[in-house]
Structures are given as structure tokens and as C-alpha cells.
């Protein structure tokens, strides 16, 4: 259990900061001295979950390593909105590679640092779900299998958002994208076998695998901190709602991530060497409709005649997560 709940302080553990907490117990994001690894002026949409998730994660990594981080970044929104040549929002050493080879580039950087004896400098690779679960998957699996000393962070917004919301293998079932339109007898994305990369990472038995969302900052920071304590291949998969691709209000980004977790749609857990160590339990269980309804990518499920069978199918997926990961029982709280 990496995330020790703070004993009751006015609002407990759920806010970003708290004026009543001793400084050492405060979150990285609450500090006026946080790194702001990705600075203002970036061109992400209003309310972008990916920009937020990246700052949460990389600031935590910077804090954990005393500012000794080099990042490799796959093509995707995160790269495009932060770094239109010759301008960048990154305030850390950062390299853009290609859409599919970030894991390999990061491996190379780690190897170079090792040769130079600079092992205090740590390497982070980051990319979107498309870059990670689709085109970059081979490089990533190789990085896991070789146990290269890299923390790979996937920002999962459920599609190829940068090029206009195309489907990826991480796009959830029934969601509308520009390549899975809401027309025909089975509108939206197919109900396939699913490709939940955290589970695949787990199957590599690497030292550390975790999931997180932008709705639970303290949990996310604790996971990055834990990952930086470990050497070898590590993987963190962060759910980052995308207002554009999901068709949600810009102000609802964190709320959507919270609903994904509370409905069981997105399981939040932590594992070491292939064993699940803890889950972030659901606080107030909710039906999946509460998560689906605010998103226009599911609007076709809720017309005059709601597609109850599809909704039931999505509910069954959530229930399966709840059962498989014990989201109602164990937990870190």
C-alpha cells in the first residue's frame, strides 16, 4: 500500500492540499514551488485531461528525483500541443521521437546514462493510448521484457485524439469515434476482446504496474513516487478524459475521471512483480449510466429509445472489473 491516507483533516485526503497538514505530508501539486514541468501557454484544449495528467505525473517524478528526469515523448496531443517548433512548454530535458518508438528511445537514453555512469538521472517515456497500445506496443513490450530502467507513462484518452478522434485499441466499447461512427445496426466501437494494457504489462511480471486517474491526485503522486523508488521497467497507465473526443464539458474533465473510477469502468490499482498490491476502492458505487450519459460519444445509447442491451453490456464490463480487482472490498483507504 503506497498511499497512506492522511488522518482526518477537515476534508480528509481528497483535496489537492490542506493548510492544516505538515508540509512533508502535502502533495507536490499543492506547493507553490512545484516544477510546472509543462508550463502555461501550451495549446491543449480547454480542460484537457492529458495536459493535467502529464503535469501531475512529471512534477511528481521531478520531485522524487530531485529534478533528475529526462523524458522521451511519442507523437500525439501531448507532444503537439506542448512543442510546436521552435517553442516548448517543457521545462525539463525532453525529446520527441516518433509515434511508435518512444519506449525504444527511452531505453537508449537509459543505456547511454548507464554507460556514462549517470544513473541518478532517470528516464521517463510517455505517450498517448494510440502510441502505446497500438503502434508503440512492440517497442514497449520489448522494454518490459528486457526490464529496461524506464518508467513508461501512458495517457489514455481512449482514441487518436490528435488526428481527429480515431479509434484506438484502447477506445472503449460502444464509443463513437470518427472511425466508429454512430450509424448502422451496431453503432460505435465494437465489443471486441478488449486490450487493457495494464493487464498485459502485469503479465510481463515487471517490477511495477499501476493505473491512476486525474481525479485522485494523491494516489497518482504516490504511484509515481513509488515507481521512482524502483529500478527496472515500470508502467503507469493514467486515464485522462478528453473533452473534445468524449464530447464532455471542459469543466467536467476531473468529474468524468472520477465517474469512470466510481462506476468500476476504469479500475485503479497497483501491482509489483505481477502481483496486485492494492486497489483504490470505490467510495460511492454508481451505475455506468452516470458515467456514460454526460459523454456525447455515447449519445446514441440514450436517444428516445435507450439501448438498454448495450448499456447492460457496459455495466457487465464494469461489474467484471469490480469483481476481478475487488474494487468494493480492498483498497488503500
Amino acid at each position: 500500500m503506497s498511499f497512506q491516507p492522511v488522518k482526518f483533516y477537515q476534508t480528509g485526503t481528497f483535496t489537492v492540499g490542506n493548510r492544516l497538514l505538515p508540509p512533508e505530508e502535502r502533495s507536490v501539486q499543492s506547493s507553490d514551488k512545484r516544477f510546472n514541468s509543462i508550463n502555461s501557454g501550451h495549446r491543449a484544449c480547454q480542460g484537457c485531461g492529458e495536459a493535467l495528467g502529464a503535469r501531475y505525473a512529471i512534477d511528481a517524478a521531478m520531485e522524487a528525483t530531485n529534478g533528475q528526469v529526462i523524458a522521451a515523448n511519442a507523437t500525439g496531443c501531448l507532444e503537439v500541443f506542448s512543442t510546436p517548433y521552435p517553442e516548448t512548454s517543457w521545462q525539463i530535458p525532453w525529446i520527441h521521437s516518433l509515434f511508435g518508438n518512444t519506449a525504444a528511445v527511452a531505453t537508449g537514453i537509459a543505456a547511454a546514462l548507464k554507460v556514462k555512469g549517470q544513473t541518478q538521472t532517470r528516464v521517463v517515456a510517455q505517450g498517448g493510448d494510440g502510441g502505446t497500445t497500438d503502434i508503440g506496443f512492440g517497442c514497449l513490450s520489448g522494454m518490459f521484457e528486457r526490464n529496461d530502467d524506464v518508467l513508461y507513462i501512458c495517457y489514455d484518452n481512449g482514441g487518436y485524439m490528435n488526428t481527429g478522434v480515431q479509434r484506438s485499441s484502447a477506445t472503449p466499447s460502444a464509443a463513437r469515434t470518427s472511425t466508429t461512427p454512430a450509424v448502422g445496426s451496431a453503432p460505435g466501437n465494437v465489443f471486441g476482446q478488449g486490450k487493457f494494457l495494464p493487464a498485459i504489462a502485469l503479465a510481463h511480471d515487471i517490477p511495477y504496474v499501476a493505473t491512476a486517474t486525474v481525479a485522485d491526485l494523491r494516489d497518482l503522486e504516490a504511484k509515481v513516487r513509488r515507481a521512482m523508488e524502483i529500478r527496472g521497467a515500470r508502467y503507469i497507465h493514467i486515464l485522462v478524459p478528453c473533452p473534445l473526443g468524449w464530447g464532455t464539458a471542459a469543466h467536467d474533465t476531473i468529474r468524468m475521471a472520477r465517474l469512470a473510477k466510481e462506476t468500476g469502468t476504469f479500475p485503479v490499482f497497483e501491482a509489483e512483480y505481477g502481483e496486485i498490491k492494492s486497489v483504490l476502492a470505490i467510495r460511492h458505487p454508481l451505475p455506468v449510466e452516470d458515467y456514460l450519459k454526460p459523454q456525447k460519444r455515447y449519445a446514441h445509447l440514450f436517444g428516445k429509445q435507450p439501448k438498454v442491451d448495450v448499456i447492460a453490456h457496459l455495466q457487465a464490463q464494469a461489474d467484471r472489473n469490480i469483481k476481478r480487482y475487488g474494487l468494493l472490498e480492498q483498497g488503500t483507504r
Partner: peptide, 15 residues
Amino acid sequence: CFECDNCYGVCPDNA
């Protein structure tokens, strides 16, 4: 406001 730092933390634009 009770200075919980939420607004400060959740802004994607550090604004």
C-alpha cells in the same frame, strides 16, 4: 475559500 489548493492543483494551464 479554505485554501485547500484544489483550484491551484487542477488547472491544466497553471493559471
